[in-house]
Computed example of a mutant assay.
Amino acid sequence: MFPDEVITRHQQFITPRRALRDAAEYREVTADEWAAFEKHFQLRRVALGDCFRPYGTPCVHEHACIRCPQLRLDPAQTPLLDSIEANTHARIREAEGKQWLGEAAALRETLHHIGRKRLQLGAPTSPT
């Protein structure tokens, strides 16, 4: 898929860099390490799709997945996204009615992210 020149130049770049690294970094992975790696990615499946955070990194959004750019939506979960959006609108109305202005602002931010997720799917923005 890549031109031969790109592959050759990449190999020329990487080979000397690998020689500078500790040989222990290139050892075979243990069964326990591989199991931990696989488990890590099994835990990345969420209701709306999959989390594409790099391996071994914490969730900086504290699992507010709808706001996270690392979430890749599963198109089959569009009805769930619709439900979340409708609920968010209802919560905004409640927050505004009770003068919970910080809550309302945070929920409007969530709506913004819902709209961005819809764009990733190529779906039109919900009319709600």
Rank of each mutant, 00 (worst) to 15 (best):
F2Y: 12
D4I: 04
D4P: 06
V6S: 07
I7E: 11
T8I: 12
R9I: 01
H10A: 14
H10K: 07
Q11Y: 01
Q11C: 05
Q11S: 08
Q11G: 01
F13C: 05
I14L: 14
I14G: 01
T15D: 14
P16F: 03
R17P: 00
R18H: 06
A19F: 00
A19V: 01
L20W: 02
D22F: 03
A23F: 00
A24P: 00
E25A: 06
Y26S: 09
Y26W: 08
V29A: 10
V29M: 13
V29T: 13
T30F: 02
E33V: 02
E33G: 00
A35D: 14
A36I: 00
A36F: 01
A36Q: 11
A36D: 12
F37H: 13
E38D: 12
K39A: 14
H40S: 09
H40D: 12
F41W: 14
Q42D: 13
L43T: 13
R44Y: 00
R44A: 11
A47F: 04
A47G: 06
L48A: 10
D50T: 15
D50E: 15
C51S: 07
C51N: 06
F52M: 12
P54F: 00
T57R: 08
T57M: 09
T57Q: 13
C59T: 05
V60E: 15
H63W: 06
H63I: 01
C65I: 07
I66R: 03
R67F: 02
C68Q: 08
C68W: 07
C68H: 05
C68T: 07
Q70N: 15
R72A: 15
L73Q: 05
D74M: 06
D74N: 15
D74P: 04
P75G: 08
P75M: 09
P75T: 09
A76G: 11
A76K: 13
A76T: 09
T78Q: 11
L81C: 08
L81K: 03
L81E: 07
D82N: 12
S83F: 05
S83G: 13
S83M: 10
I84L: 14
A86Q: 11
A86N: 07
N87S: 10
N87M: 06
T88M: 03
A90T: 08
R91T: 00
I92F: 01
I92E: 06
I92R: 06
A95G: 05
A95C: 02
A95Q: 03
E96W: 00
E96R: 11
K98I: 01
W100C: 03
L101C: 03
A105I: 03
A105K: 14
L107Q: 08
R108K: 15
R108S: 02
E109S: 08
E109I: 01
E109Y: 07
T110R: 15
T110C: 04
H112A: 09
H113Y: 15
H113D: 11
H113Q: 11
G115A: 11
G115C: 06
K117T: 06
K117P: 03
R118D: 07
R118L: 14
L119S: 12
Q120G: 07
Q120R: 11
L121A: 07
G122C: 12
G122Y: 09
A123D: 10
A123F: 09
P124S: 13
T125Y: 01
S126G: 05
S126I: 04
P127V: 04
P127G: 05
T128I: 12
